[in-house]
């Protein structure tokens, strides 16, 4: 494992901690898209089917379990928690995420590394993760104002993707064998989706002002 991959995993972990902190400290999930959170839960559940078949390292196994557990916990909180669920912006979180699931599944059936149950679900999870942030970005754009923790959550999530790209570039030059093109192409698409958000995030940071997205 190289430093970029580790930094990517850590910023991913931080983004989840920031989100949990926001929900726990403010007892509110305003500004957070339940659609995106449900998609992430589905992404981790379908990607980590290999928990039962392949062992990579203790680190990998623990991280997989953390990602599955935290994404399920967040969905549970937003749907079931008596107080938290009241702050959910249901009216503006209307992105039809089922289409993303359908499109990702069709693409996975057509484009995969190997025609096996596990490989098709792995490809599905990669495609779905690339698109999963869309409901969240649309919700932020609709609500206009972005609170601090929500802004940081999306920022760390984007940083995680950027580090993964650096990781692939590094691996490309240090390892002879390179066969992760599905993950790389999807990862580039995924990171590109954050470009707009990053732009406004850095402007607000530079001006020391509250993050606002144009309507």
């Amino acid at each position: 494992m190289n430093i970029f991959r580790f930094a990517g995993d850590m910023t991913h972990l931080i983004s989840i901690l920031v989100l949990l902190l926001k929900i726990y400290a403010t007892k509110s999930c305003s500004g957070i898209s339940l659609k995106t959170q449900e998609l992430y839960a589905l992404v981790f559940l379908t990607r980590y089917l290999d928990l039962f078949t392949d062992f990579i390292s203790v680190y990998n196994t623990i991280m997989k379990l953390v990602f599955i557990a935290s994404s399920l916990a967040i969905v549970w909180c937003m749907r079931m928690h008596r107080v938290v669920r009241r702050s959910y912006d249901k009216e503006i979180d209307t992105f039809r995420h089922y289409f993303l699931i359908l499109a990702s599944f069709l693409l996975a059936v057509l484009v995969h590394e190997k025609f096996t149950f596990q490989e098709i679900f792995w490809a599905f999870s990669i495609y779905l993760e690339a698109l999963a942030i869309l409901p969240q970005l649309v919700l932020l754009q609709r609500s206009g104002n972005v609170d601090n923790l929500t802004g940081q959550y999306v920022f760390f999530l984007g940083a995680y993707r950027a580090f993964y790209i650096l990781n692939w570039i590094y691996r490309y030059f240090t390892e002879q064998h390179f066969s992760r093109w599905i993950a790389c192409l999807s990862g580039i698409v995924q990171t590109a989706l954050y470009a707009d958000f990053f732009y406004y995030y850095f402007i607000s940071w530079k001006n020391n002002a509250k993050l606002q997205l144009p309507a």
Binding site: D9, R47, D54, N60, K64, E113, W122, Y164, S179, A183
Partner: peptide, 10 residues
């Protein structure tokens, strides 16, 4: 040979 390897990234 394109033997699929286990996915070592998260």
């Amino acid at each position: 040979n394109v033997e699929s390897e286990p996915h070592d990234e998260l």
